[in-house]
Amino acid sequence: MTDDGIRLDSVTRRFGSGSTSVTALDDVSLVFPSGTFTAVMGPSGSGKSTLLQCAAGLDRPTSGSVTVGGTELTALSETKLTLLRRERIGFVFQAFNLLPSLTAEQNVALPLRLAGRRPKRAQVREALQQVGLGDRARHRPTELSGGQQQRVALARALITRPDVLFGDEPTGALDSRTGRDVLALLRGTVDRDGQTIVMVTHDPVAASCADRVVFLVDGRVHGELSGAAAEDIAAHMTRLEAKPEAEPQSESEAKLQDQPEAAPC
């Protein structure tokens, strides 16, 4: 990937038309560099999930462009976009989305099979070992805890070695201790493997594991924090929720730098 792993240029996404139209993203420009971990936060209805969907090629913006690893998504046909998502993008959601009839190793191997590739058992076992489930390969989802299921989902997302991993509230369905274990795994893929991660979350503790946090309000970027502790992130969110009508900050004002503190991951 290029240094600018993911780039959004003047991305706007509107739903509906005329007087009933809703603008979910309003002229958003952002860069998510390769090998970094970015959290996206904002009040309910701020456009977080729409941003993720447009950046991941799951939705097309009304205007503007999205580029992943030098490839502009908005210029691709649906077929080429599907192939790009399959080969270069991974997803982890709040819902684990595991097939109940398949074992952990079969669930992990599924993306390779869908891509017409024959998965090697050693490769699948290595992916499970990476998330601490090497001894659970033959267990079905009902035989695994919620945290273990999410780790299987993470192994499934990483098995194709994607350029970028998108997470939509990946710890939202987990208790705090299990959630921190999953966050530590995500953080490890960035530090150890140079993985690029963009994660939507409402949790300041989860966001504190990221290199930076980008804030959205009413579909527009309202600043970012780098290396911030959970308390600083929570305080910034409180200010945004108290004044959702505030004008977006300038680029210089947006980069609110805090001294890094120890994160839970």
Rank of each mutant, 00 (worst) to 15 (best):
M1H: 13
R7V: 12
R14D: 13
S19V: 01
S21Y: 01
L30F: 03
L30V: 12
T36W: 04
V40Q: 11
Q53L: 10
C54R: 07
A56F: 04
G57C: 08
G64Y: 10
E72Y: 08
L73T: 09
L76W: 06
P100L: 14
L102Q: 09
A104P: 15
A109V: 01
L112P: 12
R113V: 07
R113C: 02
A115I: 01
G116P: 05
G116S: 03
P119C: 05
R125G: 02
R125S: 12
L133H: 09
R136I: 00
R140N: 07
Q150R: 11
R156D: 08
D168W: 11
L174T: 02
L183G: 13
A184Q: 13
A184T: 14
L186E: 13
V190E: 12
G194F: 09
M199N: 12
V200F: 02
A206F: 09
A210G: 05
V214G: 11
F215Q: 11
L216G: 11
D218W: 04
D218V: 00
V221F: 01
G223E: 03
M237E: 09
K243A: 14
A246E: 05
S250I: 00
E251M: 05
E251T: 11
A254W: 07
Q257C: 00
Q259D: 12
C265H: 09
